[in-house]
Simulated assay, not measured.
Amino acid sequence: MVGRDVGLGIRRAATEPSGGRMLELVGVSVPGKLDEVTLRVGAGQLVAVAGVEGNGQSALEDVLSGLAADPSGAVRIADREVDISSPRSLRDAGVGIVPSDRYTRGLVKSLGIDTNLAVDSYTTAPLARRWGRLSRNAVRDRAERIIAALSVKASSPRTLAGTLSGGHAQRVVLGRVLDGAPDVLVVAQPTRGLDVGATEFVWDTLVEHRARGAAILLISSDLDEICSLADRVVVLYRGRIVAEFDKGPFDREALGSAMGGFQEVAA
Rank of each mutant, 00 (worst) to 15 (best):
Leu23Met: 04
Thr159Pro: 00
Arg11Val: 14
Gly3Asn: 08
Ala138Arg: 09
Ala118Val: 01
Asp83Cys: 04
Gly32Ser: 06
Asp231Met: 10
Gly3Trp: 10
Leu223Met: 13
Arg76Lys: 12
Leu194His: 04
Ile226Asp: 07
Val63Pro: 12
Arg158Pro: 00
Ala14Phe: 05
Glu208Gly: 10
Leu107Ile: 12
Gly19Pro: 01
Ser228Ile: 07
Pro157Ile: 06
Leu8Ala: 09
Arg21Lys: 06
Thr191Cys: 10
Phe245Gln: 09
Glu253Arg: 13
Arg88Val: 13
Asp179Glu: 15
Leu46Phe: 11
Ala138Pro: 11
Val173Phe: 05
Pro249Thr: 05
Ser29Lys: 00
Gly27Ser: 11
Phe201Tyr: 13
Glu24Gln: 12
Val119Arg: 08
Ser121Thr: 14
Arg12Pro: 09
Val26Ala: 09
Gln45Ser: 14
Leu67Tyr: 08
Ala266Leu: 15
Ser72Lys: 04
Glu264Gln: 14
Ser121Gln: 11
Phe245Asp: 08
Gly239Gln: 07
Ala14Met: 08
Ala93Glu: 02
Pro71Cys: 08
Gln263Ala: 15
Phe201Leu: 13
Pro190Thr: 11
Arg40Met: 09
Ile226Pro: 00
Glu225Thr: 08
Lys33Trp: 08
Ala148Val: 06
Phe201Thr: 08
Gly260Gln: 15
Val47Ile: 15
Val207Ala: 06
Ala243Pro: 07
Asp222Tyr: 03
His209Thr: 08
Gly20Phe: 10
Gly42Pro: 06
Gly239Tyr: 09
Val196Arg: 08
Ile216His: 01
Arg40Asn: 12
Ser72Arg: 13
Ser221Leu: 00
Arg240Ile: 07
Ile77Ser: 01
Asp183Pro: 11
Asp83Pro: 01
Ala118Cys: 05
Trp131Cys: 14
Val63Asn: 13
Asp114Phe: 07
Asp5Ile: 14
Leu164Thr: 02
Leu46Gln: 11
Val26Lys: 10
Thr38Lys: 05
Gln170Met: 05
Gly9Arg: 14
Asp183Ser: 15
Asp70Ile: 09
Ala215Gln: 00
Asp141Ser: 15
Gly7Ala: 15
Glu53Thr: 15
Ser221His: 04
Ala59Leu: 11
Thr115Tyr: 09
Leu127Asp: 06
Ala74Met: 05
Tyr103Ala: 15
Val184Arg: 03
Ser85Gln: 09
Val234Phe: 02
Thr124Ala: 15
Ile146Thr: 09
Ala68Gln: 06
Ala243Arg: 02
Val177His: 00
Ala161Thr: 01
Ala254Lys: 13
Thr115Asp: 14
Leu25Met: 10
Arg240His: 11
Leu134Tyr: 05
Val152Lys: 01
Leu25Gly: 00
Ser135Tyr: 12
Asp231Val: 04
Gly193His: 02
Gly175Leu: 11
Val139Cys: 09
Val28Gln: 03
Gly56Tyr: 11
Glu200Ile: 10
Ala48Arg: 13
Gln189Phe: 10
Ser156Trp: 07
His209Asp: 04
Val119Ser: 10
Pro157Cys: 06
Gly51Phe: 13
Val6Asn: 06
Pro99Ile: 07
Ile77Ala: 00
Asp92Asn: 12
Ile10Gly: 01
Ala148Cys: 01
His209Cys: 02
Ile77Glu: 01
Leu206Met: 13
His168Cys: 03
Val82Arg: 00
Thr123His: 13
